[in-house]
Nucleic acid binder design. Structure first.
Lengths: 341, 341
DNA sequence: CTGAAAGCGCTTACAG
DNA sequence: CTGAAAGCGCTTACAG
């Protein structure tokens, strides 16, 4: 079943059939209707490989996800898929390790699949600087800002990580906590050259919450670096409690780490929130099912996915990158205790 | 950069280059070495679309996942991907709703991508019976048995669901529980015509555990049907507690439902395991981080993914389907209380 | 063992 | 508005 069969059956040439299939405007309405009817009748589906070979791009989009156990991304991914499908396009999904190189993978995907565009779920600044010059299709980085990178084909949709972390930290501070540990991130030092990396922005937000209230902040003392996983959160919380037993609250830079921390605190014989208060980040569904229900910063997965896809679909060769910020929401939870003053 | 460039640079014809690239045996060793060197030098990568157009199949595999919030599948998926990549092949991933039609999607994927083979993570018997005749590439169904379906191109790797559920239920019974509720599945009736569907097998296993101990089992009374999600588990546990307040233990057919149940029990003002004991199924990582740590049946994600991929890679046009069972493990947890007798 | 050539299914200038 | 033809990058009988 090829375009040739449709041509023969309809009495037109393959070129005309192709034009109808691709929605070219310069086709007689009657011809179009007739050919479409034959396509329908025969159940003809074009061969994507042949099309891609000629057009030098495939008809599908790709999504590259950083980190596999990331439930926030899992939720966004699901929604993105249905949006892209609703637009009549196909999607391929690729995973890369939390510490892997998503841009390297993108280069490879471009070479192998020639996608119409790529959505990145998470991304690391250094990787983009090093290698993104080699990817030429339109891309959207979701959950991390990309404006300062200045690539014309790289848009972004993200949450204001600094403000989010500032509010999360502010929530703990306003509950009376002062000895507050932080787990997550790639460095416990505030390093301006790390620029817009998500973890750095969150760390900056934590700092800001302290400084705005005239309180001292010591990043190196308060922070334990951790992978964004339950195991990472467990180990980081354990390390934190070891070296700073007086800690009264912990801010985890992701809910999934917070869940690891929850267990670690429990394994110490301590309770949340009676002994240690805890706040997460992301607002995944699981946070609401935890006992105690986890306080968190909810990123708007609906908006992030919807806008990410919309922007990508509207980007063509040559349009300008756009950078959007979507609002977040502080979700109070049972995991934070208000200290008597 | 095409095969033609390699041909020109090396002084051989494109046909010869193609033969080298595809590892055909009838090429002079010197020629092969020389052409390979040129390929390396030029950094040539073949165009998959052109290859697929000629060969009528792509060079990649597809994975179809049923249900998006399934953490067991997420773990298996990750491992499968790395195995397939290690074998030098590409992978595309597709999600379908828990109640969607994975076989319909497979038919579509075959048409659009012509994959070398498909791995199904989860699958529904009825869907396979209705539509699998239209997919002709080798497939492996992972986590659900497919032997009774009798398709020559459908292998399977799975856990013995009936035995797993029997042991889980046995664990509760041996702890002294008798009023045991079950959440999950597609029907609270044991219906032989539902055949090898996973939930039915697990329900049968539950029944067997009772009968083996000479205890009565009432599927309709004890079971609440539920989606395999936290929300589903929450609602099912709530419904169960409403209609049968004397229940002393709950078996959830997945850990993720168990987590929903945990919260539902808590919201009733009851505690696990003091008031209600709870056991899950799947053995996802999260189960070990719950407070209390969740008792569960651990499916061996390593084996399931490894064997699934190995079987698929070894299947060619015409080889026979194979059906493997991999062992599981009962993981005791803090969520089950031993009743005094 | 290697080359020349046909052809996979489609798109798109180029004529008309 | 439509047709005839070239060509996308590759593979594979077919000769030699």
């Amino acid at each position: 079943m090829t375009i040739k069969d449709v041509a023969e059956r309809s009495g037109y040439a393959v070129g005309t059939v192709s034009r109808v299939l691709n929605g070219h405007p310069d086709v007689n309405e009657k011809t179009r209707a007739h050919i479409l009817a034959v396509v329908e009748e025969l159940g003809f589906k074009p061969n994507n490989h042949a099309r891609s070979l000629k057009q030098h791009v495939s008809s599908g989009y790709s999504i590259i996800i950083k980190g596999d156990g990331n439930l926030l991304f899992a939720g966004i991914l699901e929604k993105m898929q249905s949006h892209i499908k609703a637009a009549g396009r196909t999607v391929s999904i690729y995973y890369v390790d939390e510490h892997g190189d998503e841009v390297e993978l993108a280069v490879q995907v471009c070479r192998d699949q020639k996608p119409l565009g790529i959505l990145f779920l998470g991304g690391n600044r250094e990787n983009f600087i090093r290698r993104f010059g080699d990817v030429s299709c339109p891309c959207v980085l979701v959950t991390t800002r990309a404006d300062s990178l200045g690539f014309p084909n790289l848009s972004s949709v993200s949450t204001d990580d600094q403000e989010g972390a500032a509010q999360a930290m502010g929530y703990l501070l306003d509950a009376g906590h002062r000895r507050i540990g932080i787990i997550g991130g790639d460095s416990c030092v505030i390093a301006p050259e790390m620029g817009c990396n998500m973890s750095q922005m969150r760390l900056l937000g934590c700092q800001r919450a302290f400084l705005q209230r005239g309180l001292p902040f010591d990043a190196e003392r308060q922070t334990v670096v951790s992978r964004y996983s339950m195991k990472g959160g467990y180990e980081a919380a354990t390390a934190l409690l070891d070296r700073w037993p007086e800690v009264s609250a912990i801010l985890a830079m992701s809910d999934i780490m917070a869940i690891g921390a929850l267990r670690a605190i429990h394994d110490r014989g301590l309770r949340v929130p009676e002994d240690i208060s805890l706040i997460g980040y992301d607002g995944i569904k699981l946070a609401a099912y935890c006992v105690p229900r986890l306080a968190t910063i909810r990123q708007d997965a609906d908006q992030l996915s919807r806008r990410g896809v919309d922007i990508l679909l509207s980007q063509m060769e040559g349009t300008r990158a756009v950078h959007e910020i979507v609002p977040f929401q502080l979700i109070p939870g049972e995991s934070v205790r208000v200290l008597e003053s």
